[in-house]
Design a protein around this nucleic acid. Structure first.
Lengths: 244, 244
DNA sequence: AAAATAGTGTCTATCAGACACTATATA
DNA sequence: TATATAGTGTCTGATAGACACTATTTT
């Protein structure tokens, strides 16, 4: 682990320096579509290419703090942002100048504001997941893992409630699932299913002010329940992954 | 990310050096019980305490290579060992002497041999999961996460087949599930369930040489199928996690 | 009035698990 | 012969999904 190697003749201070960075896959929903936060690189390598926001960790901060800071630097906010670790990458030669180990993080939150380009990037923007350019470095892979993690976590955690406002309708919650999963869901069955999972949502006794823009009754408002895990889970529609 | 910070006045080479280590949660089944590989620390801090095996990454190796090397140094082998990344930890002050970021890995394999103490540890041994001492550093937490990951992956991947020999009986496979999950399973239902999952196992046309030591017919032998994901999954017996 | 939506009722196919049973092996 | 195990048959309760229906709201 930490220091036993000191005793075995391994002195890491004699090694080439290792730098540790964090990369953030930040997801939000805008105008009914899933978006990821990207920055346009201003310098080589990969100048002009889009990449995930990220940067070096600082001496006094833990890894999640560094991820939150990087996200805040681009979006100017932190409240109600869920952050969790994805994976780490450390292949030699990943960066031509020095050894870099990168820890990736997944973040999501509702209604994130427009980004402002940091001093280190030419531009920053929310980009639709379904209309992405090829990303710099191995960021396509990292983004893919982040997306899959988010989609999987919708199944067995109440994560979707972090994508909506504090009180929400079942239809709004269904919209989150449909947007992240990219598939339409059956309104009636989804409704009954959500209410049948203990602790997923709890009623507020209130309803929306009016019906939908195109008609329909007022919808009851709910808030997130206290469940950490959904039992039973809301499984994605069968993905035909034929073996072989 | 990787290098955009270079342009923003952040030179990581001006920072205190960061060292990167790997820690390995290595699991195997011996005598019907789940075991984890531990090393006894020979020096401060935590001298005399047991810890997960691990050490510093070397300049020319990727992270998974480092984990495999650390495991091989303690067990003297590598064949048929499944290794996957768990998580990374980088809290400042985690080690009193310098900044250390640790990447943890999960490994499992069948019939791993007795360990030999590396030069950096006082002792090394397979220890039963249900009879563990308190571990050094934050290794209790890392081990816990590794166990949960292993238990979860048995549900939806054919991971259990990496715990048994190349050909195996359904009863042997059931033993893996019972050992890792720590619960008895219904023999008949498990049997039918395994055979109903496409690509989980495939028959060899052969059977065991004789029956069980206490009687019974010869069992058919199977080998691992080509499925990467189990559909439908083999879910653990309901864990009553009352919301609260 | 027409159209859209919230929410509920009901039916069916599937699956997990309980239980029972047979066939075959060992001691 | 007694006992344990491999493997199969069958029943029940829970659940996902299809479909239908009522009630409420907007245009």
């Amino acid at each position: 682990m930490d220091d036993s190697e000191f005793l075995a003749g391994y002195d890491p201070r004699a090694f080439p320096a290792v730098a540790v960075t964090v990369d953030v896959v930040a997801l939000t929903i805008r105008e009914g579509a899933l978006h990821v936060l990207l920055v346009e690189r201003g310098e080589q390598p990969h100048a002009g290419r889009w990449a995930l926001p990220g940067g070096f960790i600082r001496p006094d901060e833990d890894l999640p703090e560094a991820a939150a800071r990087e996200l805040a630097e681009e979006t100017g906010l932190a409240p109600r942002v869920h952050i969790e670790q994805l994976a780490s990458y450390g292949a030699p030669g990943r960066d031509p100048r020095m050894r870099i180990v990168s820890v990736s993080y997944l973040a999501f939150a509702p209604r994130l504001p427009d980004p402002r380009a940091g001093s280190d990037a030419a531009d920053a923007a929310w980009r639709r997941i379904d209309r992405l350019p090829e990303l710099a470095f191995d960021h396509d892979r990292i983004l893919g893992e982040g997306l899959e993690r988010a989609r999987a976590k919708l199944e067995y955690t109440p994560l979707a409630t972090t994508f909506v406002d504090e009180t929400f309708t079942i239809t709004e919650l269904r919209g989150v699932y449909e947007t992240v999963w990219g598939v339409p869901l059956h309104a009636g069955n989804f409704h009954r299913k959500v209410l049948s999972v203990p602790g997923f949502v709890e009623g507020t006794g209130q309803t929306t002010e009016g019906g939908g823009t195109r008609g329909g009754p007022r919808a009851r408002l709910y808030r997130a329940g206290d469940a950490r895990l959904l039992h039973p889970a809301l499984l994605r529609p069968a993905r035909e992954e034929a073996a072989g």
